Computed example of a mutant assay.
Amino acid sequence: MEADRPREIRASAEFSRCGLYRRRLDRWWSDEPRALVCGSNPSTAGAERNDPTVCRLRALLRDRPGIGGFTLVNAEDRIATDPADLALWLRGCDLATLQAHRRANLARIRALAADAALCIVAWGNLVPPGLHADRLAAALSLDGRRPLHAFGLTQDGAPIHPLARGRSRVPLGASLLVWRQGEG
């Protein structure tokens, strides 16, 4: 029977020419709209390779009605599997270069948010409150015109990461919460 057949998961990813930046990663299983998920720092996962975050996002989103896949973007598009590596890069990046990267990334995120079925923030405590976080929330929410969702909240009110463990682990099938920056 057609309806009982598992749906193939298709994949793509967009990297910079130099390979140091991952612009987006996509996984989809139907023609229904995709969710836009925003994390903190991209890994080396790509079209041919998953990482634990991508696998968990597939598990959390695959059976959600009206969602045909997801596009994963990050607050910073510099590949840094370890958040400490991203912090080191940020400290060493000159201000003009960092601003140019962030402007381009925010423009890309805003464009993707406009086409997304819903936007999910999932960066844990890795995006500190401040101007960049405010601009990121504005791009994702289209300046407050669309709600932002989260899988859950950290103790500080930050949007929980899909790989959270222990009591914070996101159960499969859990409802998404509406997330408002600064609430907690």
Score class of each variant (00 low, 15 high):
A114S: 14
I67S: 01
G68D: 05
R27L: 10
V121W: 00
A104R: 13
G19A: 10
R7P: 00
A117P: 03
V121G: 11
G39H: 01
G19C: 09
H149S: 09
R22C: 10
A47F: 02
V37T: 08
G157W: 02
L126Y: 07
H101C: 14
F15W: 14
L112A: 13
S168V: 04
A75I: 10
A133W: 01
D134T: 14
D4E: 13
G182P: 04
D94W: 05
L136G: 07
Q99T: 12
I120R: 00
G130L: 10
L142G: 06
G124W: 01
E14H: 11
G92A: 14
A174H: 09
R91F: 06
N74Q: 05
A139T: 06
S175M: 08
D77F: 09
C38W: 00
S12N: 14
V54R: 00
F70G: 04
A111G: 13
E14L: 14
N125P: 00
A75R: 00
R27S: 06
G184V: 11
G173Y: 08
G152T: 07
R102A: 13
W29C: 05
L60Q: 02
G124D: 04
L140N: 03
I120A: 04
R7H: 10
A116Y: 03
C119N: 08
G166L: 07
L136W: 02
L20I: 10
D134C: 09
D4V: 12
R180L: 11
D63Q: 11
R110C: 09
T71H: 01
A122H: 02
P33D: 07
L176Y: 04
N41I: 12
D4F: 12
G68P: 03
E32T: 04
A107S: 12
S141R: 06
A96V: 15
P33E: 06
S12A: 15
V178C: 11
P129A: 15
P129T: 13
G130Y: 05
N125M: 07
R17M: 08
L176E: 05
N125L: 09
W179R: 07
R27V: 09
D63R: 11
G182C: 09
I120V: 15
V170S: 02
E32D: 15
R102M: 12
R62L: 13
R91E: 13
R180S: 13
E8H: 07
A113S: 15
R167K: 15
W28V: 08
